[in-house]
Nucleic acid binder design. Structure first.
Lengths: 132, 132
DNA sequence: TATATTTGCGCATTCAAATACCTAAATAGG
DNA sequence: CCTATTTAGGTATTTGAATGCGCAAATATA
């Protein structure tokens, strides 16, 4: 049960939460997102705080508070969300660039780079508007 | 500088070491692999022990000792090596299967599955004989 | 046989991500 | 104005991977 292809939990929380927030007409709070997604409430709260600082969300405190999109759904790509949490997605042939790889080229060839590029393009073309 | 696509260091050590062992005519030891790859000596030793137990390597103790392939290079695929360390490579749409994903289908669509399958096929067709 | 070398293996340590916890700040509603 | 609710944010704990360390076992070589 291993995965070559994995998002950090934080990135997954960010994307899932943004979709839920985009769908909610009048905002949605951490408790609700916890119920729907099953992630840790604390972790969700931390991730949403980062999205607020990244200027992707607006937060409202107090009863009936919650989170709202700062821009319209069609203007927010999955890649933006991902990179707000993880930093720029690197495209590189070697999955472990710091290794002293004494071969003519990376053992893995160019496949890693190609697949990362493909995925990146996919995330770039996918916006929150896909989930209305 | 984040990577969607990543091998654990252990898996990378396994693959790089197997390549080096396949190339060495008369075995190669942990120190040599450390020098060439730059991985932690301790970590390399641990990974090689697992490959010995998985019956992919033969080890010889004492001076002039080291590691040898148990089968011929052409008969060992990268996928086997990977799975000896990480367990079976899972093909699943959702990168986080335990999430209570309340959508019609996984937010990520089928791309994860497709890419994992593609990569798996690549690893299956690549053997240690490619590095003679 | 003695010694140095190298793997085998268990346990301790480190490190980052995930998680938990607690208090402050804001605010809706009575 | 008071109280309950909800986000903000700092700190502590947990967890698993990666590392480090020390000693035992094997063996080549002198």
């Amino acid at each position: 049960m291993s995965r070559v292809f994995s998002l950090s939990e934080a990135a997954s929380i960010a994307i899932h939460s943004m979709v839920l927030i985009a769908r909610a007409k009048n905002g949605i709070n951490v408790v609700k997102i916890t119920e729907v997604t099953g992630f840790s409430k604390n972790h969700i709260a931390k991730v949403l705080q980062r999205l607020v600082k990244a200027d992707m969300l607006r937060s409202v405190r107090g009863p009936a508070g919650g989170f709202y999109l700062k821009k319209e759904a069609g203007g927010i790509t999955f890649l933006e969300i991902y990179e707000a949490i993880e930093g720029p997605m690197e495209e590189t042939d070697c999955p472990l660039s710091y290794v002293l790889c004494n071969y003519d080229s990376c053992i893995m060839g160019t496949i890693i780079n190609e697949m990362t590029g493909e995925f990146k393009k996919y995330l770039e073309n996918k916006t929150l508007a896909s989930f209305n």
